[in-house]
């Protein structure tokens, strides 16, 4: 299993904050995105945004980053704190 988290505007648009992805072998963020986009047209559209950010185990990564079974992967829009 891989734990997927969504935050802020993305969480609201997908109507989902937490998703468990079945997975038994190492993968990459981009492969995870391919799988998630199959969920619906809405997910396809939202997860294809060019400004989508990603963190693996709470560290920001690029979409070619590798992901191990049991990792926590988060997707979110550009940050706006401060």
């Amino acid at each position: 299993m891989i734990k997927i988290l969504f935050f802020a505007a993305l969480r609201e648009r997908l109507n989902c904050d937490y998703y468990q992805l079945a997975c038994n072998s190492p993968t990459t963020v981009s492969d995870i995105l391919v799988q998630l986009k199959q969920h619906s047209d809405k997910w396809q559209q939202e997860l294809s945004r060019s400004d989508l950010l990603c963190a693996v185990n709470q560290t920001m990564v690029a979409q070619n980053a590798s992901v191990a079974v049991g990792d926590e992967v988060a997707f979110f829009p550009p940050v706006t704190g401060g």
Binding site: A8, M60, A74, V79, T80, G81, G82
Partner: peptide, 14 residues
């Protein structure tokens, strides 16, 4: 610190 925080810390305003 403020410039980095605004661009890098996972925080979102609504």
């Amino acid at each position: 610190i403020m410039d980095y925080l605004k661009n890098r810390a996972p925080l979102w305003k609504k």
